[in-house]
């Protein structure tokens, strides 16, 4: 479960997030939308414990990130704009390295399985620097879910993926969500966001201006609303 109370984050005079109150239950699949600079990445980085709020509180899986950061990080998978992959290492070496950091049991078979699932078995011994943007993104997805996180935070995960990889990622997310994982997906793509999320949030200028269950939203009405926000 993720809870945020009056969450505010400022970078100097610029307020990136302003008094966000949010609660997301375990197993929920939430889509987070908003124009560029709305604060999506900042919110995800705070929830991932990579950044500290300027004021307000966050609780992840019932724990306080300031006190129980290590335990919280064990539960979190985070996919951001950067792939977090070492260009100098092979695809397999990258996953094995992260498997050691997360104490993944049966690391070898887990790495083999994930490389298979993201279609990189044949390229496992290739250095990451030789992979295309799309293949790197597939490997980054594998890294994010390697340790079987209970909470998955995804920041524009479809960037750079070809249609085949988009389908594979969608299948993976549906599978992960089906096993009770909380997913918070930040995306610009209205269709995909509404297709996957069971709840939709919209951030604008650091404020949470929209929070509704998916079943109460029609594509047309939401598209009009969202165009108004982004224009």
């Amino acid at each position: 479960m993720i809870e945020a109370f009056q969450l505010t984050k400022s970078f100097g005079p610029r307020v990136a997030l302003s008094e966000i109150d949010l609660s997301i239950e375990d197993g929920d699949f939430v889509t987070l939308m908003g124009p560029n600079g709305a604060g999506k990445t900042t919110l995800l980085r705070i929830l991932a414990t990579l950044s500290r709020p300027s004021s307000g509180r966050v609780r992840i899986a019932g724990m306080d990130p300031a006190r129980e950061g290590e335990r919280i990080r064990r539960c979190i998978g985070f996919l951001s704009h950067g792939t977090m992959l070492y260009d100098e290492l092979t695809a397999e070496q990258n996953l094995r390295f992260y498997a050691r950091l997360y104490d993944v049991p049966g690391a070898s078979s887990r790495v083999d399985d994930l490389l298979q699932r993201v279609g990189l078995s044949e390229r496992r011994r290739d250095k990451v620097s030789t992979l295309s943007r799309g293949l790197k993104q597939r490997l980054a997805v594998a890294r994010a879910v390697l340790h079987g996180p209970r909470i998955l935070l995804l920041d524009e995960p479809y960037t750079g993926l070809d249609p085949q990889a988009v389908d594979a990622l969608t299948d993976l997310l549906v599978d992960v969500a089906g096993r009770g994982c909380l997913i918070l997906l930040a995306t610009h793509r209205i269709n995909r966001g509404l297709a996957l999320g069971r709840r939709v949030l919209v951030l604008d200028q650091g404020r949470l201006i929209y929070d509704r269950p998916r079943e109460t939203i029609t594509l047309r009405a939401f598209t009009e609303f969202y165009r108004g926000v982004t224009s």
Partner: peptide
């Protein structure tokens, strides 16, 4: 700089380690 490339440093900071 190697850690900064591709935000690898975030990967380290996200891991459950001190």
């Amino acid at each position: 700089a190697r850690e900064q490339r591709n935000s690898c440093i975030d990967g380290l900071l996200l891991a459950p380690m001190s």
